[in-house]
Design a protein around this nucleic acid. Structure first.
Lengths: 221, 221
DNA sequence: TTTGATTGTTACAATTATGTTAAATTTCTA
DNA sequence: TAGAAATTTAACATAATTGTAACAATCAAA
């Protein structure tokens, strides 16, 4: 992952399932950045202290009060190197604090460290949940060590759900994360793919794994 | 949360359970604003000093004398910067006092600070009360570590009540917060859902948890 | 081009949830 | 304690949500 423009003031990093890599967005206006954050829910935010309209500290505080965004890791970037400033920054909810000037290498190292800590299974090549195994390198899925053939969409679905087992995702969230480009897809379509995935997983087995949460969505469970 | 129109004179901020975010309403007439406040019982009010029909100070005083609304935090916005005015404003019951011109970011910071103080558990993913546990991420409810199956409405009900244990909510408040869209629902319907929730919770257990307050409403207790 | 796999959509069936009613019960008050 | 008011409860019809199968369109590989 390369952060192209070191000058950009707010940088959002978001994993894209389809491309299987991180995408980077930049924004130099505090207020707009906050909107953008709420819109895309990035996996990580690099935040300058000084910003037009809304300071980094303020954005940080606002995000940390909101359930939907409080978990997003934030790295504060700033020229302020005073001990006191660091404490203020971290107290406002930032996960890390880097003072300028910093080396590009160090920044990337810290970004990767945070991403790994926050979402370990995103970056893992092989993820297992009970007797299910997803191998992202070989693009294969196993149940009880036997391979299961999945179509691309079913693979993405399972791959997504297994990142946070037990967590319930709404159909909207699944659309955003798995279809991303072409959002004009019916809700029912998701159900159909869930069904296909279930069918494929349940080879002469009892456990369903995919829980339907009525009026909410689906979860791997 | 973004307050779009800084010119609007009374701004009501209300948390919406279904959308899981704050909604903002505006009103430029004092009298109408008061009605609206009583109708929706917002979580926070931004109040201008000067208003047609009914001044901000008057609204503030009225609300603070009413049991049902006295807990709502109020921020007074005004051009009057005199020490004396500030004291008058705060004495009339306002929780905070901001003089124009003020920065948008300061306003947002203060709003969020108040909301956090007043409604701290809104944003928590997992809430517990005695041997009850509500997990909003997995959308599961537990009693004594055993899972309890709830329908969507029962889940919302419990989820709402557990945010402020022991606080009594009227049927009207429950309607507003849980049914929100379609308010044309009989009061008796709430009772029925309360019953279903009780039934689900009381798996071979003694404690009821849901207290009926005659001619007032229900509370988790 | 043909073949087969994959995809999104629709219609309908199955399931689950919801709101209403009315009767039974409890609680309050005179 | 009788009667009124409020709440609980069960039953039921209706509504909403989800599951399923069949189909047509698209795409990729042979």
């Amino acid at each position: 992952m390369i952060i192209e423009d070191e000058e950009s003031i707010v940088t959002l990093v978001k994993y894209n399932l389809e491309k299987e890599g991180y995408k980077v967005f930049s924004n130099s206006n505090g207020e707009k950045a906050l909107e953008h954050i709420k819109e895309i829910a990035p996996d990580l935010i690099l935040l300058d202290w000084m910003l037009p309209n809304l300071s980094g500290i303020e954005i940080c505080k606002i995000l940390k009060t909101e359930k939907k965004h409080k978990h997003i890791p934030i790295i504060m970037l700033t020229a302020k190197g005073e001990e006191e400033d660091k404490i203020r920054g971290l107290n406002s909810g930032a996960d890390d604090y880097i003072t300028k000037p910093f080396s590009h290498k160090e920044l990337i190292a810290r970004v990767n460290a945070l991403l790994r800590r926050v979402n370990p299974s995103v970056s893992e090549d092989i993820v297992e949940y009970e007797d299910l195994k997803v191998d992202r390198i070989e693009r294969k899925v196993f149940r009880e060590k036997k391979e299961i053939k999945l179509g691309p969409t079913e693979f993405k679905l399972l791959n997504f759900l297994i990142k946070n087992p037990k967590r319930v995702y709404s159909r909207e969230q699944l659309l955003e994360n798995i279809w991303s480009d072409n959002i004009n897809v019916e809700n029912r379509t998701i159900d159909v793919h869930i069904r296909r995935l279930r069918q494929a997983i349940n080879i002469n087995s009892k456990k369903n794994y995919i829980r339907t949460v009525r009026s909410a969505g689906y979860a791997l469970d």
